[in-house]
Design a protein around this nucleic acid. Structure first.
Length: 753
DNA sequence: CAGAGGCGAACATAAAGGGC
DNA sequence: GCCCTTTATGTTCGCCTCTG
């Protein structure tokens, strides 16, 4: 029903083929099977055609004319060849990836219809013909980000009111903006923007045409998947997503307009900001709820089974959108919706349309996906039809094959994972995990079985006396992290979400490093002078490390170790002109009054305790003078520590936040129901917010979330604590207060104590 | 119009899940 | 740990659409 409405509303029925269909659209050309195989062989997620299409489109979006266009392609490292007519006019072009073998050429039209040379020429000409502002006005024009965002905000109006051609033009230009953005965006946003561009490319492709006189059912995967992609990728339809995006955060309240735009696009596409249940949904809502294990009146956890005999209830051929739980139409018959059992109970379940969309994006047929995933095509069809859940093992393989994140396939978001989600992502059954855990020494005595793993994941009491202690649970959490190949903190957070009423697991303390006898032996072999040098350099190194730590706490950007560990030892110039370096000062205090760069330094270098760098430094009045810099090696630090009896400061337990992130969490907690405004738009959200990821791979902590304030149904979104964040504060506030006394917790101390 | 490929449905079976 | 139930998956068949 919903699908029909969307299809009718947007004419998303079928894309005409052939040249007449291509005009004015950006229909992409699918990669051939051979190209996909080659990409797979090379361990590449993308085929050559996809890479070229992206690069060419990016170049086009930056170019003012054809010359610049070809120059940009060459600058991007592509091999470019043009064909000339006898008249001297350009006839066409072809491109190939930089390749040490025989280049495989693709003509522009074989990448996408809008990359055909006449189309490009037409577009560039049209761009040139645009009236431009007077030069004087340019000085005051708003930033490109503001312009782009404003254009995005106007798109809903165009979609609603403009004619078809104009709509297509707006969408094409917006798509080009999306392609151009990554080049200008901060590095951490580039991946998001790139994904948005790809999603939009698919969406625009099928928006182009009104339905033919005789409605037909889309059959081929690219057409159907793209239809869904349009709805799905853009939060179900382009008009709604853009309207919604415009209402999220105002540009003016954020430090970075680019982040706001990315946030808006991402939030619209993934439904990051679900309106509270009591409020009217502003997003084109997913009509599906993640299928959940139902609980009967008796409390007996038994799901309503999927019909084993579908002869009684015919499943419709197509269910583009998951029906709401409750009632749904099945070929004119009202029947109760059957809920999937989904092997994980509360696990984030696969969204059928998301799978179909991801498969469509990659141009894979059901057969191909089934082969790659190691299941039968029948299973893939049932997953996409929503009649069968994906097993834990198949889910993990699916993520690998589709090169996507769990959140791309499920309604779940990063930072909301349960223990079972983590296992499904790793593609393991409970029995496999139990077997792997049993092999670990730390699991001895725990008698880990698949049943205990399941009990743990369901929040049920785990049998066995040993399981009660937080220390044991900490060990289990760490072993799970090792088995799944993810950081401890991810498991700890998922553990707390899964078992909120338990005591938090305590991660095993880091073992104090033993003083190495080998290090002491090296120390004994040094003469007094060499020992003094090593000691002074070590102290200076530690001082630099502490300075660096303080700067980081103060919010300064991360600097690579090479930039601050390399210490200046000496300048070859009279001391009365250039003074002494800090290391030389230390050496003088230690009684070495001729602190030069001679044999002692070389001896330490030879033993691998320090690395010596020699270069020249320009000093006013003296010109270029030789400079000697030294950097301690790990071995050098170990020797100095062993000899001086210094034990490194214990690092905070892995599940705790850095002072910087703790400060953010405290700030959001202190704001309470008011929330914190968009000024939080730094890197913090990547580590802390639901739906984000610090590294594009592991989930964020999920401690804060951007949403409308309670009781508000419009206006700017603000940051609030999640339950997970609240629990984390309650679990660790005392530890944090002693670890980071400079972070003022204020009123929340009483609230969370 | 024939063949290929995609898809849904029906049935059989292996495996996971749950109760005791 | 056993046994029964439930569910995911494999296999096969027939229908539909597209392509040449």
């Amino acid at each position: 029903m919903a699908a029909t409405a969307v299809e009718e509303g947007f004419g998303l029925t079928r894309v005409p083929r052939g040249p007449e269909a291509a005009a004015g659209t950006s229909a992409v050309k699918r990669s051939t099977r051979a190209e996909q195989e080659k990409a797979k062989r090379l361990g590449d997620g993308k085929t050559a055609r996809e890479r070229l299409r992206h690069t060419v489109r990016t170049g086009l979006s930056h170019a003012k004319d054809l010359d610049e266009f070809f120059n940009l392609l060459a600058d991007a490292g592509l091999q470019v060849e043009t064909r000339m007519l006898p008249s001297g006019d350009l006839q066409g072009y072809k491109v190939a990836l930089p390749d040490d073998g025989t280049p495989v050429w693709f003509s522009g039209s074989s990448l996408a219809t809008d990359l055909y040379l006449p189309q490009i020429r037409q577009r560039l000409t049209a761009t040139e013909a645009q009236p431009t502002a007077a030069p004087s006005a340019r000085r005051h024009r708003p930033s490109a980000w503001h312009v782009a965002t404003a254009a995005a905000e106007r798109n809903p109006h165009h979609l609603d009111h403009a004619d078809d051609g104009a709509v297509q033009a707006h969408l094409t230009v917006f798509g080009e903006v999306l392609y151009a953005l990554p080049a200008r965006a901060p590095a951490l946003l580039q991946a998001e923007l790139h994904r948005a561009a790809l999603a939009f490319e698919q969406a625009v492709h099928i928006r182009a045409h009104r339905p033919p006189a005789r409605p037909r059912t889309a059959r081929r995967p690219e057409v159907h998947a793209a239809t869904l992609a349009a709805a799905e990728a853009a939060g179900h339809n382009p008009a709604t997503v853009l309207q919604q995006a415009a209402q999220y955060r105002t540009l003016d309240d954020a430090k970075s307009a680019s982040e706001v735009l990315v946030w808006r696009i991402h939030a619209s596409a993934t439904g990051t900001h679900p309106a509270p249940a009591h409020k009217p949904h502003k997003l084109a809502t997913r009509t599906s709820s993640p299928p959940r294990r139902s609980v009967s009146d008796t409390g007996h956890k038994r799901a309503i089974a999927i019909a084993r005999r579908p002869s009684t209830v015919r499943v419709p051929r197509r269910r583009p959108f998951c029906p709401p739980l409750g009632l749904t139409l099945r070929r004119g018959v009202v029947a109760t919706t059957r809920r999937l059992r989904f092997a994980g109970g509360m696990a984030q379940s696969l969204t059928p349309q998301a799978l179909e969309q991801q498969r469509g994006f990659r141009g894979m047929s059901v057969q191909e996906l089934a082969e790659a995933t190691g299941v039968s095509p029948g299973s893939v069809r049932r997953w996409e039809a929503g009649t069968q859940a994906v097993s834990d093992r198949a889910f993990g393989r699916l993520l690998k094959v589709l090169h996507c994140d769990a959140q791309d396939l499920t309604a779940g978001e990063r930072g909301t994972e349960t223990l079972q989600d983590l296992r499904r992502r790793a593609g393991m059954s409970a029995a496999e995990v139990a077997a792997l855990l049993r092999r670990k020494r730390a699991s001895q005595g725990l008698h880990i079985s698949a049943e205990k793993v399941r009990d743990l994941e369901r929040g049920r009491p785990v049998s066995g006396r040993d399981w009660l202690s937080p220390e044991t649970q900490g060990w289990v959490a760490r072993m799970l992290a090792q088995v799944y190949g993810i950081p401890d903190r991810v498991v700890i957070d998922a553990w707390r979400r899964t078992r909120p009423n338990d005591i938090a697991p305590t991660l095993p303390a880091r073992r104090p490093r033993n003083t190495s006898e080998a290090a002491l032996t090296i120390w004994r072999e040094l003469n007094d002078r060499q020992r003094s040098y090593l000691t002074c350099i070590f102290h200076q190194d530690q001082e630099a490390e502490e300075e660096q730590r303080q700067n980081r706490y103060a919010g300064e950007a991360h600097r690579p170790a090479a930039a601050w560990r390399r210490l200046t030892l000496a300048l070859s110039a009279p001391a009365d002109l250039v003074g002494f370096t800090r290391i030389q000062e230390r050496l003088r205090k230690a009684g070495i009054h001729d602190p030069g760069t001679g044999s002692s330094v070389s001896a330490l270098d030879r033993r691998g305790l320090i690395t010596v760098y020699r270069d020249r430094l320009y000093v006013d009045g003296l010109g270029d003078i030789p400079r000697t810099r030294v950097e301690m090696t790990r071995r050098g630090r170990a020797v100095a520590r062993a000899a001086l009896g210094v034990t490194p400061a214990p690092a905070p337990p892995a599940a705790l936040l850095s002072p910087w992130l703790w400060k953010i969490v405290v700030r959001v907690a202190r704001a309470g129901a008011q929330g914190v405004d968009g000024s939080l738009a730094g890197r913090g959200p990547h580590y802390l917010a639901v739906g984000q990821s610090p590294d594009g791979r592991t989930p964020s902590r999920g401690f804060i979330v951007l949403r409308l304030p309670d009781e508000a149904d419009h206006g700017p979104y603000r940051w609030f604590l999640t339950d997970s964040g609240r629990r984390h504060i309650a679990d660790h506030i005392d530890t944090y207060r002693s670890l980071y006394p400079s972070v003022e917790v204020g009123s929340i101390a009483a609230e969370f104590a």
